[in-house]
Design a protein around this nucleic acid. Structure first.
Lengths: 220, 220
DNA sequence: ACCTGAACACCGTTCAAGT
DNA sequence: ACCTGAACACCGTTCAAGT
């Protein structure tokens, strides 16, 4: 009975990269990228910050490993969900849903270049294109545009809401306009399409872009 | 003669947002995003770090203003350079050349959502599409894909070099592969196209993606 | 109003010391 | 080998005090 552990923050087992990544993902889901700190993460695991360095190289390493782990879910199409869309289109839409559900993944995908999660995604896109009959010579360029579309959207996530807020709010909009020194200070296109922002759906916009790219690939 | 100033780091005039942004751009060009520090920037301007806050809101504000300033160059097609490419294609290629020349711009474009530089670019893309005869109803989606392509490439800049390094270096590649827990650990597409990386040109890849998108827009 | 620069509240990372 | 946690070397930002 001297061996009883405190009920809170029990250290049931030794540290491992897997346990650390798991705790990191929980922290990221709760508070986003900024919430992931070696001090808070160590506290969650009931240890000191230095202990983590025995299992992960550094913070970037940990973020990349966390992204790679949650990315695995987009590579398995869930058959229980009835009509899960197949092919590249389904893969891309699952990526969109992931970065919408977990915004920190979007931040991470666009922050680090060619991290494992991105390489993995690139490979799956290429594999799907191959299965779809895209000729070998065209696969590299086609997979690239699709990958860049996903990452571009990730880096500007919440496009509709943010655009609407920026363009609708006149004063904020004109403030940012004034910074453009060499320009006339007019945003003709943005003001013209501003009305479309009200009933805007980011998912549909992503899908529309996806279809444009797929049409361009099919034409090549 | 008591009024002589030291030759180095003279404070010829008062601080202003414009002078601060100019100094920030010089620092960014020399050392990248990480080199921009309020302490080093204040030293370059012969002042204290607190003084900068009278003219810029914070570091993100300063980075956004710096990006917006250098972005102005892509909105003017240089007529002295002979055959500067016109239209959306020329605009997009000038963006690519800018982020290649100044890597910190690439970092910044993909780091902050809908900052002035991105809004400005989005507007110009839409304006070019309008001039090109793309129907109004299709302009928003078309401009979006193009913008996301530019930002996606920006976030994964040096694609060719980095991919080549990753895939060619067997040991590093297998290390990152091992992290994929739920997967078989195979990257069939990447290994198959690895041979293409040797004579790879990032600019051509960007252009190929651009042409796929333009083909898709023309078809819609 | 603008500037100064010390001070505050954090970071990631290292490393002597323990087990 | 693994863990501990204090210490190091930085950050962005604030703010009393000066001009």
């Amino acid at each position: 009975m001297t061996n009883t552990k405190p009920a809170s923050a029990r250290r049931s087992d030794a540290l491992s990269k897997q346990r650390i990544v798991q705790a990191a993902i929980e922290t990221l889901d709760e508070g986003g990228t900024d919430a992931l700190t070696f001090r808070t993460l160590a506290a969650r695991l009931s240890t000191g910050p230095g202990a983590l360095y025995h299992h992960v190289g550094n913070r970037d390493d940990l973020l990349a490993a966390s992204a790679e782990t949650v990315m695995a879910s987009v590579f398995e199409s869930p058959p229980e969900n009835g009509a899960a869309e197949p092919g590249v289109r389904g893969l891309m839409m699952r990526v969109f849903d992931l970065i919408t559900t977990r915004p920190w993944v979007a931040t991470q995908l666009s922050a680090a270049q060619w991290q494992p999660a991105v390489l993995h995604l690139f490979d799956r896109i290429g594999t799907e294109l191959d299965a779809h009959g895209v000729p070998h010579s065209a696969q590299f360029d086609a997979a690239s545009v699709l990958l860049f579309h996903a990452i571009g959207v990730a880096s500007q996530r919440d496009a509709g809401m943010q655009l609407a807020a920026t363009v609708t709010d006149r004063s904020a909009f004109l403030d940012s306009t004034r910074a453009a020194v060499t320009d006339t200070g007019d945003y003709p296109f943005l003001t013209r399409i501003a009305s479309q922002f009200a009933g805007h759906d980011d998912r549909e916009q992503f899908q529309a872009g996806l279809d444009i790219i797929l049409a361009g690939i099919g034409r090549g």
